[in-house]
Computed example of a mutant assay.
Amino acid sequence: MATIKWVVDTMHSEVQFKVKHLMITTVTGHFRNFNIEAATSNDKFTDAERIVFTADVNSISTNNEQRDAHLKSADFFDVEKHDEIKFNAKSYENVGGSDYLLHGDLTIRDITRPVTVGVEFGGIVVDPYGQTKAGFTVDGKISRKDFGLTWNAVTEAGSVVVSDEIRLQADVQLIKQS
């Protein structure tokens, strides 16, 4: 069977992360520039041959320029040396109905670790312009320290400023290529 290629529809997709700040509130950020490419042999993604996600760390945004600059610094992502985050999927496992687990290798700061995220497959539709699109919601969490993102500070009361756990959330539309 022929390979079907899919590319991300960036106008209808977003990639976010959430982290606890002072352990009392959550800060949300996103990447403005990212890419997803997939290759399958059918429209149901049950046999995904390739799923690769990349994010340009320079495009990180938390709606606060000072915080974004700190995230780009050597304290966190160190964009001068490591300007890309990459996830290379290894397998896509159905766990019931439209729920899947996506297993793969995540690379941040040249440190690669296995990661599994939950995926809800929203289905496939043909849009008003004749494009076949597939929709997905992705949820997961990682330990930032596993990827060398270890900067932190302690408040007067002894609480940490930034939690170790990072929640990952993405809503993605892929466009089938002819």
Rank of each mutant, 00 (worst) to 15 (best):
D56Q: 11
R167S: 00
S91N: 15
F87C: 01
K72S: 12
V138T: 09
F77I: 00
Q16M: 08
S159C: 06
N152I: 03
A74W: 08
I60H: 02
K86R: 14
E84G: 04
R113S: 13
S13E: 10
D75M: 14
E65R: 13
D68Q: 14
Q173W: 01
G135C: 11
V172H: 02
V172C: 02
S73A: 05
G130A: 12
G148E: 04
G118H: 05
G148T: 05
V52S: 07
D83S: 15
F17L: 01
A38W: 11
H82E: 03
G140L: 01
K141A: 02
W6P: 08
Y129F: 13
T107R: 03
Y129L: 13
K18S: 14
E165N: 04
E93S: 07
Q169L: 02
W151A: 10
G148Q: 01
I124S: 10
E84M: 09
L101V: 12
L71T: 08
G96A: 06
F136G: 00
V8T: 14
Q66P: 05
R67L: 09
H82C: 07
V160C: 08
D171F: 10
V7F: 03
V57F: 08
K20Y: 01
G96L: 06
H103D: 12
I85N: 01
S41C: 11
K81E: 07
V138P: 01
L149W: 01
F45D: 00
D127N: 15
Q131L: 15
R109E: 12
T26A: 00
F31V: 12
E80A: 15
A39M: 15
S178I: 07
P114N: 14
F53V: 13
R109H: 05
D78M: 04
E80S: 14
Q169Y: 08
S178M: 09
T150D: 03
K145V: 13
I166M: 04
F121V: 07
E84T: 15
E156R: 13
L101M: 15
I124C: 15
N88I: 14
V27D: 05
T107I: 07
G158A: 02
T62L: 05
D171K: 13
F147Y: 06
D110S: 14
T40D: 03
F31Q: 06
T46Q: 13
I108W: 00
D47P: 03
V115W: 00
R167E: 01
Q16V: 14
I111C: 10
V138A: 06
V117Y: 02
D9Q: 08
L168F: 00
T112K: 03
T116K: 06
D78L: 06
A39T: 13
K72A: 09
S13L: 05
F31R: 04
E165V: 05
V138Q: 07
E93M: 08
E156G: 10
D99N: 15
T10E: 07
V52M: 07
W6R: 02
K133C: 11
L102I: 15
L101A: 12
T137L: 09
V57Y: 12
V162C: 04
P128T: 14
G148W: 01
F31T: 11
G158C: 02
F147K: 00
Y92W: 13
F31D: 02
F31S: 02
D110R: 06
D43Y: 09
D127W: 14
G130V: 12
S143L: 10
D56W: 13
